[in-house]
């Protein structure tokens, strides 16, 4: 398959190349060099952006993490003091790390399962499905601060829709964002509402699963559950893998929700919404401890990196790539 495609492509360029030659015969760069130049030219906006706007600051923050950098007046090398401080002096560091881990641990499985469940439902062939798909995808396009404000109203303890709804069933709803035990579940609830984005990915991959497999399984007497667990799940496992990986990384970076939904961005009642990035932000811009904040950022990077590597290793065991030999 593959080699055939490339031959065609090559032949195409050859022809184009010959035409060029005829027109401007003379001193010219070799075709290879010219292709390279064009290649780099095409990605140059990204390269320039990366070198100037990403790599520089990245390396700078790595250096800053070993200093007492305060943005404006000092930058003395203090070795590993910032990292020591996280584990010995700064109590809020532990709180923020715990809050973040709690959030990741619940949000990733819940949103993944939720999105898969939803996409399977929306993959049925019934009338009006397009309408439902649109409906469930809608929350995903409404994002950011407006949604947080909306949810703050929905979760209002006595008049919010959520508690009013629970009241119909005789359940007295919690105080949600006012009770430290319920603030994180409240955020999770909000996240579940907007699984539409992930749902779309799964829906696309579900439609790529060949119906012949289901037919074959049916002939062998497989039930709905068996079809789901032995055909559907393995077939969409690359997408699940991708989703878990990116949403884990994304969940570790949770910031906006806590910043917007707590009073003065303080981290909520009893610091129950003080997430890692919020604590880092407070250190950087409230007390100007940019060195310490940089160290926190790099520590988070290391944590996320390790988890991603573990994820990749584990992924090999359960992700099924169609046509590949699973290596």
């Amino acid at each position: 398959m593959k080699s055939y495609d490339t031959t065609i492509a090559r032949r195409g360029t050859d022809i184009a190349g010959e035409k060029e030659k005829k027109k401007t015969a003379g001193k010219r760069l070799s075709r290879q060099t010219r292709e390279n130049i064009f290649g780099y030219l095409f990605i140059s906006p990204w390269i320039i952006g990366f070198l100037g706007l990403t790599l520089g600051p990245l390396l700078f923050s790595l250096f800053a993490s070993f200093t007492d950098y305060n943005i404006t007046s000092k930058m003395n090398f203090i070795g590993l003091d910032n990292f020591k401080r996280m584990f010995t002096i700064d109590d809020l560091f532990k709180t923020s790390l715990w809050n973040t881990l709690y959030y990741v641990l619940f949000s990733v499985p819940l949103t993944t399962a939720g999105a898969i469940f939803l996409s399977v439902l929306l993959n049925q062939k019934i009338k009006g499905m397009k309408f439902f798909r649109t409906l469930y995808y809608l929350p995903a396009i409404l994002s950011g601060v407006a949604v947080y404000f909306l949810w703050m109203q929905l979760l209002s303890p006595s008049t919010g829709l959520v508690n009013t709804f629970l009241g119909w069933f005789g359940i007295e709803g919690p105080a949600w964002l006012f009770d430290p035990e319920w603030t994180k579940p409240a955020l999770l609830l909000m996240k579940m509402w907007s699984v539409g984005g992930g749902m779309l990915l799964y829906l696309a991959s579900l439609q790529g699963v060949s119906s012949s497999m289901y037919e074959a399984a049916e002939l062998d007497g497989a039930g709905a559950m068996q079809k789901f667990f032995y055909i559907t799940l393995p077939m969409i496992s690359p997408i699940i893998f991708f989703d878990v990986l990116t949403s884990t990384i994304g969940s570790f970076q949770i910031f906006q929700e806590a910043y917007v939904m707590t009073e003065n961005g303080s981290g909520g009642p009893g610091n129950s919404l003080l997430f890692y990035n919020l604590h880092m932000w407070n250190n950087a811009f409230e007390v100007f401890d940019m060195g310490y904040a940089s160290a926190m950022a790099w520590l988070l990077f290391i944590v996320v990196m390790i988890l991603t590597v573990i994820n990749m290793k584990l992924g090999k065991k359960w992700v099924h790539y169609e046509g590949g030999d699973n290596k």
């Binding site: 109590d91 809020l92 709180t95 009770d179 430290p180 303080s266 981290g267 009642p269 009893g270 610091n271 407070n282 250190n283 409230e286 007390v287 100007f288 401890d289």
Partner: peptide
């Protein structure tokens, strides 16, 4: 004592929440 309030407030919150 920069940022001292962030160390005191959670404790006060916890008192008021009866924790």
């Amino acid at each position: 004592y920069p940022d001292y309030q962030s160390r005191i407030n959670p404790h006060i919150d916890n008192v008021l929440l009866g924790k």
